[in-house]
Design a protein around this nucleic acid. Sequence first.
DNA 1: GTCTATATACGGATAGAC
DNA 2: GTCTATCCGTATATAGAC
Lengths: 190, 190
Amino acid sequence: MALKRKGQEFRQHIVATANRLFYRRGYNQTSFTDIADAAEIPRGNFYYYFKTKDEILDAVVDYRLEGIRAMLAEWEASIPEPRDRLKRYVQILLNEERDILRYGCPMGTLNVELSKTQLVLQSRSREMFEVFFDWLKTQFLAMGCGRAARDHALHVLAVTQGVSLLTNAFEDGAFLRREAAKLKQWIDEI
Amino acid sequence: MALKRKGQEFRQHIVATANRLFYRRGYNQTSFTDIADAAEIPRGNFYYYFKTKDEILDAVVDYRLEGIRAMLAEWEASIPEPRDRLKRYVQILLNEERDILRYGCPMGTLNVELSKTQLVLQSRSREMFEVFFDWLKTQFLAMGCGRAARDHALHVLAVTQGVSLLTNAFEDGAFLRREAAKLKQWIDEI
DNA sequence: GTCTATATACGGATAGAC
DNA sequence: GTCTATCCGTATATAGAC
């Protein structure tokens, strides 16, 4: 029992390390050697847990989805007003400013990379967008936006993605803060 | 003289081919073999024109910058009103819908890729954003936006980038058309 | 200037000892 | 379950014949 638990921790350790590297270096630019070095485990070792590199990405996406769903559930529990929940979503930009400046959005940049030549993997990474989209739409529906809820949800996703991309490209934190404020104001005016 | 000219055409042919492949497959996922095959020239051949892969990207960025500057100059000459010029910029989204659906924005996706682990090359790709930014700002200034011109220019860049990214992620052309219309309307209301 | 053959390094993946 | 040694393919890049 103790041994099996250790094995699972081992696996989790690999996934968490790969997750960090896939964000910072990109998927294709992260080698097995990179992951092994960062996780401080022998190179050939994790083929016991993952037969191919694709499977590691699969596990990383599951790991991220779990984190996203837990975060959204926490917001649902602690923030009563849909409008405030939407603004909490925008707040991510400000909380993650440092990482966005350097590496962009984890979700957006992964999707951009995979959509070029790895469509099967891209469809997995798109699931993250879909989870956020469904949640955003639900909030707009709760605000009484009706048929516009879908458009609004996609709009918020697009603006946050565009802001992350430009913030990263120009290394401009002030721009990110201005646009986050504008988006919160837009939400308030609905 | 004829020989030299042939050499330059050879070089241009390589750059144009690399440009297309860098857009469709990404920079790191495009090999010399890919370029050689697509251009129908022997592999080792173009080391005569480019000593490293970096140099090919450099030439590709120059090639794109040339195209962007020519396009903007053409708009300046044929479209008298700054407001109409801005809407012409947004119109790119609609004209390039098919490619955006499949490969995203050439400028944005290249920047995302290079900003992870190739900062020197990223600073070159950022030049494309800067050319568009300067031009957009000039148009907003001509419309009398004053100090807001800078923010407006970055805003337009961010929205078009976000829309391209989401359109590609969800393969949703209708979303792109809706957002392009909204952005044109926003320009009209300034 | 053009092309072939090849050097060298590193990628993902495997075999099998322990 | 863990780790070492290694295979094989492909990557960028070079040497040198023509």
